[in-house]
């Protein structure tokens, strides 16, 4: 099984150096989410807040 973390580049996701891995939140509901204090989730949230503009990336194509 491949893991999210890649040997030699343990904290990289989506090609963005330093980005944490995406935690598996299957089974977490919205009522729980505000109180979920998990290191991986906290790191992922901080990554989003550090650079929210990266989520506006759009792959554009022309004819």
């Amino acid at each position: 099984m491949l893991e999210q973390r890649v040997a030699g580049s343990a904290a990289q996701v989506g090609g963005i150096p330093g980005s944490p891995v995406l935690p598996d939140l299957t089974g977490v509901d919205l009522r729980t989410l505000p109180y979920l204090d998990d290191a991986a989730l906290t790191a992922a949230v901080e990554d989003v807040l550090r650079c929210p503009g990266s989520f506006t990336d759009m792959w554009k194509d022309s004819e």
């Binding site: 099984m1 999210q4 995406l22 935690p23 729980t32 204090d37 991986a40």
Partner: peptide, 16 residues
């Protein structure tokens, strides 16, 4: 107690 976040595992065949 809130559940902990898990970690994804991607099978090699899935990637291929």
């Amino acid at each position: 107690m809130a559940p902990a976040a898990g970690a994804f595992r991607v099978p090699p065949d899935t990637l291929l």
